[in-house]
Design a binder for these strands. Structure first.
Lengths: 342, 342
DNA sequence: ATCATTCCCGGTATCGATTGCGTAAAAAAT
DNA sequence: ATTTTTTACGCAATCGATACCGGGAATGAT
């Protein structure tokens, strides 16, 4: 048995009316007599009639759905963002279609094409760690697809963006390590291509310079896959820990990097914070239960998702082309716990 | 500017052919001459033609999309399940539409109607903690909507189901606490309505009885919202800790309950495992970094999602009605760490 | 040269809902 | 009683793609 919904045609046939009359009755048109309206409405209620959204989409050339492209759903930050997006979308009658890039440029491009070919009305995306060529995105964008970027954004593209104050977050985190007596602070970032990496590293550098600490390139490491793989974080940690001036603290620039760095320390029995201070960007909601409790820079992920969805829907629903682009910058929260206090 | 894709009509007009010819050429019909085919295919490639899935959906009466209904996306277990579902769906040309119940029966029903009205071809769902009336689900199911349940299933409904061996998982976890010398073991479960609660409690009881420990109802607590709210877990913990025979260990039956119980202990300075042993169901991927490292029963969430998606797609794509229903039971993994070892 | 067959392709209905236009019947105006 | 207006509804096109049916032209057969 196949799921078959009641159509306007069924109602028309049952009541001996034409489909146009039924349609107009349902939309409460003045051209329909009160008695006919009542009959139609009652029958529609009884049969639990719902307009077929696919037929509507075809007619209206819009699908009332938005695509979300992230590197990985099973990542607390992204799932919190999706949570925010979904709440706004649901409220406004849109559904959310999700796709993952798994930090692969290739998968990102195919996911974009997939979403476009699935006729979503707009796309909210955070680029993969491998992405430095934004032409696939800009092509789609230039064809008129509504798009909003968040977190990892394509800097060169003119579009609405939702980010946190990454530089400030990293600056505050680094300053805090300095204030707590750490002298030789290293930084592990995601892929060097990413906007967030650049901004966070800049915040780190600014804090060092403001405290008259020389910036040492040897103490900056990158993870090409955004820390998704434990191994790349281990490599980065090994490199840092074997540098000529061994660091006494680390600022980690993403969720996965932070936790994988912690894993490495546990494995190598490096005491945190005694031997190595640690603070990292993270949206896990139990960092205070870690051992030691973890100091984090937290992004307001839910709010970011909500804001991105609102921007996208306003673009989709605006009559004329959008020419002014907003970059919404939300504040990052710092939670100082044990891991960054000597 | 609105996103406008190339249609079959555009191709027909450009090449001076009819839409039917173009359609057939694209589908490589024998009725079309090789020259015409080549012209059409080339033009389609140049213009990056993609068939409009909405038009196809309307014609074929299927949308090539599946709905997923979970209580909360931002929950590691569910996001891992969705991850698995998405990987299978993507591969088979389906997209995934997500909806959340937030543990509310009302939201669950409206989300179900929403998904059905959005013309998904099938639904994968895990019921909310509030749900004990499965009529909304069975109504939809009886109308012919393909559905697969996972984790929290509707026991009375005849449908494909994917679960873990909950009884065994809880049995093993409890046995382990007993083996480690805990004498007075309490259990905190989700809502008493849920299949998983019943099964896990049964596993707990079986383990106690097998070890000749009297089951004490005072030591079984429930969380109506599945532990989603910290407060309900705190209430449960307080109740347990003030019972006549104060427990020396706890088995927690969901992700949120486990971590919130740990939060409570931290807040109340109850030493784990010295004062209170703890083991819980959880799919967080950093439980080994917690303080103390947390003993968990872990569900193979990704595999559950994959299996559920495969079952659903086979249902959707099968010609005839499905009459034999599978219940796939995957093993739960036990990870013994510090929190359950005295 | 005439008829039949094959090859290629176009016309049109269909899916469900909306909407501009046309129109019969009833009501109102003259 | 005739004309005009209003009421209340149906017809048909539309959105994009597919598929059944039908038909013109070229080829082959007789």
């Amino acid at each position: 048995m196949k799921f078959e919904a009641v159509t306007i045609k069924d109602i028309a046939k049952a009541l001996g009316l034409s489909t146009s009359t039924v349609s107009r009755a349902l939309r409460d048109s003045y051209e329909i007599s009160p008695e006919t309206k009542e009959k139609v409405l009652q029958y529609a209620r009884e049969t639990n009639y719902r307009p077929n959204p696919i037929a509507l989409s075809l007619k209206e050339k819009r699908s009332s759905s938005i695509g979300v492209l992230v590197s990985e759903i099973a990542n607390s930050f992204f799932s919190q963002v999706i949570n925010g997006i979904e709440s706004v979308a649901q409220e406004r009658g849109y559904n959310v279609v999700i796709a993952q890039s798994k930090e692969s440029y290739e998968r990102e491009v195919s996911a974009l094409n997939y979403l476009a070919s699935r006729s979503v009305d707009g796309i909210i995306l955070s680029v993969s760690a491998e992405t430095y060529d934004f032409s696939a995105i800009s092509n789609l964008y230039n064809k008129g697809m509504a798009m909003v970027g968040f977190d990892r954004i394509a800097e060169t593209l003119q579009m609405h963006k939702v980010i946190v104050n990454n530089k400030r977050g990293a600056y505050d985190a680094t300053s805090q390590l300095i204030k707590n007596g750490f002298k030789n602070i290293a930084c592990i970032a995601s892929s060097s291509y990413l906007s967030i990496s650049k901004e966070r590293i800049q915040g780190y550098i600014d804090a060092l310079q403001e405290n008259n600490i020389k910036v040492n390139d040897e103490l900056i490491a990158y993870c090409a896959h955004g820390g998704m793989l434990y191994d790349e974080v281990e490599v980065a940690m090994k490199k840092l820990m074997s540098s000529t001036k061994k660091p006494d603290a680390i600022i980690a620039c993403s969720d996965k990097i932070t936790t994988n760095a912690m894993r490495y320390c546990k494995k190598e029995k490096i005491a945190i914070p005694e031997k190595l201070g640690l603070i990292g960007f993270s949206n896990l909601d139990l960092t205070e239960l870690l051992s030691p409790s973890l100091s984090v820079v937290r992004q307001p992920a839910g709010d970011m998702g909500k804001k991105a969805a609102e921007l996208l829907l306003s673009m989709i629903e605006s009559k004329r082309a959008v020419t002014e682009f907003q970059t919404v910058v939300l504040p990052a929260e710092i939670h100082e716990r044990e891991s960054s206090i000597k």
